[in-house]
């Protein structure tokens, strides 16, 4: 979503993005002329008249589970967004009985929060697991 019109979205998709991604953008490109939606999400820069790089993960109940906001010059890292979605989906499927520690990705051990875990995280999680 950006403040550009759907007509500009079409030109960008058809003339540039489709040269980088086969078939073009696979999801809807939304238009937020005037930044009304961006303002509600707290990422519209009224002075510059553009949206900042806000990214929101919204769960099936419509609740915002995570967000990240970057100013324009720095781009995102999409793999981290996908990792967070996988973690939220895992936690949701466990109905809150499991949590994903720092550095978790699919296949790595999770934590089971409760009295037995207090003071024992060091036994099941090491700092080397944070960024491997």
């Amino acid at each position: 979503m950006s403040v550009d019109s759907i007509f500009v979205h079409k030109m960008w998709n058809d003339h540039e993005i489709s040269k980088m991604v086969e078939g073009g953008v696979p999801f809807p490109m939304l238009s937020d002329g005037g930044g009304k939606v961006g303002a509600a999400y707290g990422i519209y820069d009224a002075e510059a008249g553009v949206e900042n790089r806000g990214r929101f993960i919204i769960d099936p109940d419509g609740l915002i589970q995570a967000y990240e906001v970057l100013t324009p010059p720095v781009g995102r890292h999409v793999a981290e967004t996908l990792r967070q979605i996988q973690a939220y989906q895992y936690v949701r499927a466990s109905k809150g009985t499991e949590a994903t520690p720092s550095g978790w990705k699919p296949g790595k051990p999770t934590l089971k929060p409760g009295p037995a875990l207090v003071g024992k995280v060091w036994e099941v999680w090491q700092t080397s697991m944070e960024s491997d």
Binding site: M1, D32, I43, E51, F56, P72, I85
Partner: peptide, 22 residues
């Protein structure tokens, strides 16, 4: 409409402008 996507996971991404990077 965002609420049409209830029941699904949604990633909502804002960016400064078309013909820039995302």
């Amino acid at each position: 409409k965002l609420s049409d996507y209830l029941g699904k996971w949604v990633v909502l991404c804002f960016y400064p402008g078309d013909f820039t990077f995302v």
